[in-house]
Amino acid sequence: MRSFTFTSLSESVILLMFHNTISEDVHLQVMHAKQRIEQTPFPGFTEAVPAYTSLAIHFQPQLIETTNSISSTVQQYIFDLLTQPVTETQQQTERLIEIPVCYDETVAPDLIETARQLQLTTDELISIHLSKTYRLYMLGFTPGFPYLGKLDERIITQRKQQPRLSVPAGSVAIAGEQTGIYPFATPGGWNIIGQTPVQLFNRSSENPFLLQAGDQVQFKQITLQEFYALSSSTKKSEES
């Protein structure tokens, strides 16, 4: 059954839109379509960008050979590809990535206030945050910022009314049904409940991004001492 619709975002981007709700099932369909197009790309294809409920397929219009409209030609190709039965068992390879997080209030400026608003103790908030493995729906907002979900209902919060002008790099934060990690010091409006010493972005490596859409992310609690030790070792490896 066809579970998506097409629309053109521009002359060079076709959107595949799936059911308009945030769910693991819908996102699996998005990632499955991405994988199939990447495995069997059409001439002119440049990249497929996943989001919660849609996939943006970028291409170079001048490389599409057709006597018809360029977009409808690409649409037809994608439609044919995605409605073909899956021949071999195409296992989606989802990686499980562990991210150490320090929940000490010295690096978690909103921990106490967020727990208070949720009528939880800080320990309860932390253990609920640690209790699930999260799905990485997409990267965006800034390069490498992971949108992870969904949070346990007990720790759903509003964004901060006044976003911070600068959030420290590595801040682990929650807002709505999502949790995320700020890869860089940027403005940010989410509630910061922890910090990771791990660098999500390493400019000297060939693929500088630690995470990608479709990953499973598991947070692991570390102490403040471990946090500082790991922070200084990542700094050292960056300098060398």
Partner: peptide, 10 residues
């Protein structure tokens, strides 16, 4: 909207 792809010119 649910966060969705945008591009140059959107």
């Amino acid at each position: 909207i649910i966060s969705s792809p945008v591009t140059q010119g959107t």
